[in-house]
Nucleic acid binder design. Structure first.
Lengths: 344, 344
DNA sequence: CTGTTAGCGCGTTCAG
DNA sequence: CTGAACGCGCTAACAG
């Protein structure tokens, strides 16, 4: 099987009786070329089955029309929504996406910044941050490579590069307020790890809503979790064991809410009748529990697409915003007793 | 901010007092170079912060160490597991992954085959097949580009390229047998669309198990669905309305099982006491329903990694298998009444 | 409007 | 063991 040589602009030039320069200009729709020549060239290119070599173009122009997307892991389901947003936008704008798993931790980040990115000459990088690290990425930004962060950690805002996040505080505030409006007064909260800003922000929103409603904050109703389902179950078990009265539980994410639901069910507590249950994130799974989970929708798709638009803008030299915050919104289902699938 | 020029092998050559030819050889660990020279060159390269240009290398060698991964959409959660398998293997073998969403349908496929792949010079392609299309991809394979299909449609086996699938028939057989062993005799099945082989295969496995147990197959207990949750709910509703007696439901995928669970619950039917419920796929969500879902684990991670190993082998000229089939396995949870989380 | 010349960074003959 | 020269495919600078 003889692999036939690739058709180049030189071939076209020969067929058209011009130089490859002219072919290049014609194919790139430059103004300074005779319309007739252009048409003839296009036609020949078509007939010969010419396909431009992206590789050669990158070598020459330095622009690859490819964006890197670095992510900590493929285990968090939310990644897929983000990816969908990123991919939709980049695809529409004519960019490819190349994936960089950061599973090997800091070494992988180093590698990405000092070896892979410069080697592949990507036009920019979208970064979903692994919890608690951002050592070398700044180097990229200061070298002029467009970088956008998808994250909500306060300490990363107004840094060397733009970021995209959601409104964790007001989301948590909204759902807590929702519980209060339904008459719940002793609302327990299952928090995430103290080390993460998401945890702090969601807790802050909860406190804010209580305060606004004049309902006292009780430290006894705060239980720590780690964002995984078992920790949610353990949390309600410890609450029940403590003897504290509570008529609602706000889990700082849906995964823990699922665990909590299981724990409550096992203890014979009826949701939402005895205890209302709320989550955060709007994971797929929460739509199918019985009762279905009232939660706060985290706009991952929008975050992904905003990030994509931002890197492209930066890569193409257009001005772009520093920090984009996309509002989270309450999704009312069954687990708080308000019925229906209203959404506000 | 002056973007400093990139360090090339020429720079290293100048510093080392040799030619770039020698530098190239040294850096690529060729045998025909003086060990001392090699060490000196490596050291200089290190000191200068040299990073090889992948782009230039591709142009010269024709190999990009990048694999394309084409997928129909980012909505099916299982994609993430496959992606994880693919990414882990490719990362370990020193390959990048570039994503190609096939959301625009046939046009996108055409584009991929005739424009994108040849332009980007990827070393191979992993393809997750959109239901019912495979028009142009064969062209790639016959042009010598390694292609691996992740799919289980019979008609695609032994075609121009290798494929990776799972054992749908025996998986469905195993879970049906499980229900039979628990004493269930009137087992309803919710099927997927007739047009897809997955649906047919899972139905076939179900029939096989019944036959082996000498339990009659009843057409009245077969209800059609479309793999989406609402269709599962509708299916049990129609079963209940029909007045047919049944003591178990096997939904052809977990998504429909979730809908079925909801339908049964709403009708006051207790799972597993009155009716046992089984699914297929082992979706994340099925672990957290109450009762948790007994299902068949589809080894997506392994399918992804096998596919990755296969393309790389093909790209590197090693022999590779035609069709790889990775066994699905029963995961026993609560919804069939056997308790525990045994797995066989 | 078109051609000439040069070079992006690298690997690879073919000579020594 | 090392060097000179060439070319992968393309665009850019400078002439005309």
């Amino acid at each position: 099987m003889q692999t036939r040589r690739r058709v180049t602009i030189d071939d076209i030039a020969r067929h058209a009786g011009v130089t490859k320069t002219t072919v290049s200009r014609a194919l790139n729709a430059r103004p300074d070329v005779n319309p007739e020549t252009r048409d003839r060239i296009s036609e020949i290119a078509e007939r010969l089955g010419y396909v431009p070599s992206a590789t050669a173009k990158v070598l020459r122009t330095g622009r690859s029309h490819t964006m890197g997307m670095a992510l900590p892991s493929f285990t968090w389901p939310g990644i897929l929504e983000i990816l969908r947003g990123v991919s939709d936008v980049l695809d529409a704008l004519g960019y490819q996406v190349t994936l960089f798993p950061l599973t090997r931790g800091e070494e992988a980040e180093r590698d990405l910044v000092f070896r892979v990115m410069p080697s592949l000459q990507m036009d920019g990088l979208i970064l979903i941050l692994p919890p608690g690290m951002l050592r070398y990425i700044g180097e990229l930004a200061s070298r002029g490579v467009p970088v956008v962060l998808i994250d909500d950690r306060v300490e990363h805002r107004d840094r060397d590069f733009p970021s995209v996040g959601t409104t964790n505080v007001s989301g948590a505030r909204a759902i807590t307020r929702h519980l209060l409006q339904l008459g719940r007064r002793r609302i327990a909260i299952i928090t995430g790890p103290d080390t993460q800003d998401v945890s702090k922000n969601r807790l802050a929103g909860y406190r804010l809503a209580l305060e606004e409603a004049g309902v006292p904050f009780r430290q006894e109703l705060v239980v720590g979790g780690n964002f995984e389902p078992p920790s949610g179950q353990a949390a309600v078990e410890s609450l029940l064991a403590s003897g504290q009265r509570f008529d609602a539980v706000f889990a700082s994410n849906d995964q823990m809410a699922l665990g909590a639901l299981r724990g409550l069910h096992a203890a014979g507590v009826c949701v939402p009748h005895d205890v209302a249950l709320a989550g955060f994130d709007d994971d797929h799974a929460g739509r199918f529990t019985i009762p279905s989970l009232t939660t706060v929708h985290q706009p991952l798709y929008e975050m992904g697409s905003a990030a994509a638009r931002t890197v492209v803008a930066a890569a193409e030299g257009q001005p772009s915003e520093r920090h984009i915050e996309i509002p989270a919104r309450l999704v009312v289902r069954e687990s708080c007793g308000a019925g229906g699938e209203r959404s506000s």
